Amino acid sequence: MSIQVCAPALVIRRCCSEDVHAMLPLMRQLRYPTTPSVLKERLSMLEGHDQLCSLVAEVDGVVIGTIFLKQHQTHDMVKPVTRITAMVVDEKHRGNGIGKRLLLEAESWGRQRCSSQMFVSVAGDNNLTSKSFYEYSGFTCAGYRLSKDL
């Protein structure tokens, strides 16, 4: 008699507007104030957009992480770059490699679109864990981010 153990299945896929209710708790963990209708509108905007992407990580059909990407190119760039505009893994699932898998899929998305680099901005005193995660994942820290409200 053999015992079969079923490990949870991790799936990384494109996000869609129907994921809105699964995404709301993740947005709150990012301290991103939003409503279901606003988030649904923004997720709908991403669907089919060539330079914007949102991926979700789900385990056994439950969304537990997401990453948002934007590709852009300016006049002084030979190739475009991909920016991570947001990334979060549900706090109950952190430390299990979910973030790393999201990053790998994001890198693949960027490479498929000929991006030469991926970058992310990490700001604030409470983001040392995020900064360490990105550095551990191969990112290098260079310079400071400056911004101005318009």
Rank of each mutant, 00 (worst) to 15 (best):
R145A: 03
C114V: 05
M23L: 15
Y134G: 04
I67S: 03
M77A: 13
C15T: 13
K79L: 14
V5S: 12
K40S: 02
G143S: 01
P33W: 00
R145Q: 01
C15P: 06
H75P: 04
G95A: 13
H75E: 06
S37E: 15
N96G: 11
S130I: 04
M45C: 02
I67M: 04
L128N: 08
V62A: 13
T140H: 05
P80G: 12
E18K: 13
R83V: 08
R145I: 05
L69G: 06
V20N: 08
L43T: 07
N96F: 03
P8I: 10
T35Q: 04
E105P: 02
R145G: 03
Y32R: 08
R83G: 03
P8A: 14
G61M: 06
T74W: 00
E105W: 01
K79A: 12
D125T: 11
L26D: 07
V88K: 12
V122A: 14
K100R: 15
F139Q: 08
G65C: 05
C6E: 14
M45W: 04
Q29S: 10
S54V: 08
M118S: 12
F133P: 07
L52Q: 08
L55C: 08
K148H: 02
T35P: 03
S108K: 01
A9C: 10
E47D: 10
R113I: 03
A142D: 05
M45T: 05
S54C: 15
V59S: 09
E58V: 04
E91F: 01
K40P: 00
G61W: 11
E135N: 05
T35W: 03
L102W: 03
P36W: 09
T85M: 09
K148D: 01
L24D: 07
L69A: 08
V59T: 13
D90P: 12
Q4E: 14
H93K: 08
F68D: 07
K131H: 03
H49C: 09
L26M: 09
L104E: 15
V62F: 01
A9E: 14
C114H: 15
L52V: 02
V81T: 12
K148G: 02
S108D: 02
H72L: 10
A106I: 03
M45K: 08
P33M: 02
V20M: 13
V38K: 09
P8D: 12
V88C: 15
G110S: 10
L104Y: 00
C114P: 03
K40Q: 15
G61H: 11
L43P: 00
L26Q: 10
V81H: 09
S108T: 00
T34H: 04
Q71D: 01
M27W: 10
G97Y: 06
G143V: 02
S17P: 03
D19S: 09
L104F: 02
R28N: 09
R111F: 07
S44A: 15
E58L: 10
G110M: 05
R145F: 01
G97T: 09
G97W: 05
G48Y: 12
N96D: 10
V5K: 14
S54K: 05
S54L: 13
H75R: 04
L103F: 07
S37N: 08
L69T: 00
G48K: 12
V38E: 12
K131P: 01
L146A: 00
F119Y: 15
R94T: 15
P80M: 11
C114M: 11
G95S: 13
M87N: 06
V63N: 08
E47W: 07
M118L: 12
T66Q: 14
